[in-house]
Design a protein around this nucleic acid. Sequence first.
DNA 1: ACCTGAACACCGTTCAAGT
DNA 2: ACCTGAACACCGTTCAAGT
Lengths: 222, 222
Amino acid sequence: MGVVPTKAKGKPSTRVGLTREQIITRALALMDDNGASWLTMRRLAEDLGVSAPTLYWHFRDRQELIDAAIDAALSAINDVPDLSGDWRQDVTTFMAHMRSDLTAHPCVTDLMRDRYPASAERMSRRALDIFDAMGMSPADTAGSARLMIWRVLGFATLENNIRTGTAYHEATGTNVYRVASTQAAPKTTDAQRALGTLDLDALFAYDVELFITGIAGLHQHG
Amino acid sequence: MGVVPTKAKGKPSTRVGLTREQIITRALALMDDNGASWLTMRRLAEDLGVSAPTLYWHFRDRQELIDAAIDAALSAINDVPDLSGDWRQDVTTFMAHMRSDLTAHPCVTDLMRDRYPASAERMSRRALDIFDAMGMSPADTAGSARLMIWRVLGFATLENNIRTGTAYHEATGTNVYRVASTQAAPKTTDAQRALGTLDLDALFAYDVELFITGIAGLHQHG
DNA sequence: ACCTGAACACCGTTCAAGT
DNA sequence: ACCTGAACACCGTTCAAGT
């Protein structure tokens, strides 16, 4: 394996030895850099040094390629560590893991849009244990898991759009953004001024805190 | 006004009297029914009984039409009632209002995707008052407002995808869904079984409760 | 088995031309 | 001012054909 058979003169039908994995990897990289809608079959093929119809030998259609890219980008999401016994710890870990997986490839939340609910459901199953271990009712366990997933998914979607989009500018730090004032309205309040900056890490930490405090309050867990 | 000048023989360049508003209304309706990506300039034009280039007299390009559609669908969002003095009440009202606005046109969360952060930011300004009135610091006020908005936005995005998509089936009630089991894995736990049903109204109510309880716990508001 | 060019039905958009 | 058909550069996808 790994043998590249450089065969014919070089022009027509030369074997390139393209694999599904290579195509997916390149597709993900290009979408992360240029946005999901930028990538067309023709552009991807050109980047791979191949003609467009070639891709249809490896994938049935564009959607199958996209689905494979989503799966590849989300494959690491199953490596969530085992429960620690401290549910606050477990919630924090799960949410942090999920966020970092979803933001590792900024294009993935965009790609998932059509498959949103199904993808979210798949992740929910892995979250049930945390709330089950707290002694919640089955309905509350399912609801809590679902909401935890939905929240991280929503956060990561916004976050990815912010980091790759044009609505925010001037990243003053790693995850701190200056918010472009779309309205010409003068910012009078201090809170309005505070809206002008966006620290994604701090905001996520606050979201996690809010969730944990909410769960603790509603289910009487000191 | 309102006079339709039926002029020439009927074939070429007959004035139709098309307005921006008519185009936007029709575009929204078609997208709600068939999905955002279904709508093309040509299909919209055909539906309006007009040729495709005509739309480019009323709108600079497709994106301007989309932006106008978003604005139209979100215009009602400013009608959030005044503060009641009870912050729990105000949070509940705001979130409920925002959710119903975002779900009134199922296509709107899809359309907002590119404009996600900017749209969310616009709404945040209207939410600041609630937490400001609680005596929060400017930073906490901004963070709380932002997270409240993000949460409803994320919830409505999932919800709209669920209601119009194919991942869930068998709506057994108005907002209760049977979740298609994508995995063939047997559902052993009660919680896993509970995941098989999805009551959107109850889940949203739980999310609101969670948020309010979290805010109350973190900011010592009995 | 793997890759090609040509072709099909689309798409957004431009433009000269009609009334 | 408002609308048209023709045309341009794209797009996903199919298909017969090459090695």
